[in-house]
Amino acid sequence: MKYVYRSIVALVMIFVISSLTFFLVRLMPGDPIIFLETQLEQKGMTAQQAADQIQVMLNIIPHQPLLEQYREWLVQLLHGNLGQSIQQTGVSVRKLIFNALPWTLITVAIGLLGSYVIGIVLGVVSAYLRRSWVSSLIDNVGSVAHAVPAFVTGIALLYLFTVVWHVFPSGGAYGITVTPGFNLPFILSFLYHMILPGFTYVLTTFGSVTLSMKSSTITTLNEDFMMAARIRGLPKSKLMQYLGSNSILPLFTGFMISLGVLFSGSIFIEQTFQFPGIGNLLATAVNSRDYPVMEGCFMLTIATVIVANLLADVLYAKLDPRINV
């Protein structure tokens, strides 16, 4: 019952926030429809001809009142239709997103997994060796990696590995010689192309995971029940189990929120590596004021973040008996 209620709240939230973005996007200076209209008029059309032409091309009525546009958008949305791109005439937003999503999804999933595995291992090592120089080395490397922005890390890697050493390709998601599909050459080519973007993602994320894992491990190590477990004669494997389950809990929420990034990608990283994912799609859409594509990308991110939060709440209660949703 509680879950039903929470799901309804989540749905309402998704609706409200996407409605807000609908208006926000249109508040940006520069209207692509007016631009197109002017272009057509310069070719010698009358205002009426230009408007008709646009309506035929894009299924958009120029100079329609905003609320009317919103009403139309809502009706289409309820039919599961996100509209079509203004820039790439005739291509539906859904298709653009479905084309871009797998690249981002797989790359970020691998990057996220990598950064959490590395972060957790380094955090635990740093907590255990907290009196040694190894710990301060790990902490400082983690802080610096976390503090350097993704586009700087990305450009540095790009420069080093493609300009200086020619090890990895500088952009794209796969080579031109392979055919996309479920075949080995394509998969290998994709993995080869995603190493740099994925690595950039790991480099910029693992630092914060390391630092929070370290602090929660130290907190747990100093808990009375860990000392009690030692004195009760529990074997090392059991102690690690007690330590692990208790110290990883605080990281869980952060992990679930990062799942939102899974579906939005990183604009900076994908732009740097010319990676055809969602981040790149959004950046291009923003630059060309492609309203429907922007809205589609935003809605995807909004929905994932809210659903991930809901999921985090539900799963957290399963992991920690003290929490009651």
């Binding site: 009375d224 009690a228 004669g233 007690y242 389950s245 992991l319």
Partner: peptide, 24 residues
């Protein structure tokens, strides 16, 4: 570890916190 708990056990100060909070 053989001596712990089998021969010598302990009731801790602040025993409230000596149980793992995640396990029954």
């Amino acid at each position: 570890r053989q001596v712990f708990w089998e021969k010598v056990s302990m009731v801790f100060q602040a025993a409230q916190n000596t149980l793992n909070p995640l396990l029954r």
